[in-house]
Amino acid sequence: MTATVIRRFGGAILTILAVLTFVFFVIRITGDPTSYLLPFDYTDEQKAALEAELGVDKPLPQQYVAFLGDLMRGDLGFSHRWSEGALGMVFDRLPATFRLASVAFLLTVSVSLPLGILAAARRGSALDGIIGGATTTGQAMPNFVLAVLLVWLFAVKLQWLPVGGEGGWKSYILPAVTLAAFPIASQTRIVRAAVSDVLTQDYIRTARAKGLSSRTVLTTHALRAAAVPILTIIGLQWQYFLGGTVIIETVFAWPGIGRLMVDAVQARDFAVVQSGVFVLSSIFIAINALTDIAYSWADPRYRAGGRA
């Protein structure tokens, strides 16, 4: 168990470093960062001064070493658009993103778990059919399309809810619902599949045969066995929440990381893009590692066998 934890966290740190290295080289190789920071009628002196300031006048390997040194001090560059430390800007926006993602996450779990279990327990029934139809529909609806349609209906036409921005609890409804819609659909299907898989096992038939009620079989036998795959998927849904915020925050003018990054890409502010990628992928990689560890804690077979 300890070995698993160490191995996963070691791997996570290496992956984060790899992500940063990738972003560093891709951004530096493909363009001159001064070209979009200078005024149209710049002089050669201005260009040279800016290059020196950004550190891009040195050879690439040297820049990379300097970059790693800055990274150790928590310095990922300076935003030229907003004249602030880039990493600090990203951290300032982190709480808003986290609040939205958490609400969407709770919504997803509290809707998809009961629905999936219900559909599996009543497989083939009309209810299962309705849930199946709803999840198929949910998976075909891109989140931004749903977002815009809901804004049109509830904010513009009916004027019940705000169009965007973060304010009272009302401001969370539309962003959280649109962010949660797709994971609710996919997770309901996965929960249904996991529980029905278990329900076809021989030991469930044995439990039924010895006279246990279907409720007891479902709660004590089936759900416990289905918990491991469900737990994993819930962890992996965070990939979707973190990625989805980029679009949802843009639609709802939510003051989070996603919108900051879209703005930064439009403004060609590479320090902010780099910091945003660093923070979001670090969170994401850490969640993956924690999910893996939770998995090996819940399922001893996984611990012994290592990764396939």
């Binding site: 992956t15 790899a18 992500v19 990738f22 972003v23 891709v26 951004i27 493909t30 363009g31 990939q239 973190l242 990625g243 989805g244 980029v246 679009i247 990054m261 879209v262 890409v265 060609r268 590479f270 893009v273 945003g276 990628v277 979001l280 992928s281 994401f284 990689i285 993956n288």
Partner: peptide, 19 residues
């Protein structure tokens, strides 16, 4: 492993930035 550990939309943003 590397690519799966980065949210896809970030890759989109970085490449949109670069290309």
């Amino acid at each position: 492993d590397f690519q799966m550990s980065v949210p896809g939309i970030l890759l989109v943003l970085v490449l949109a930035f670069v290309i």
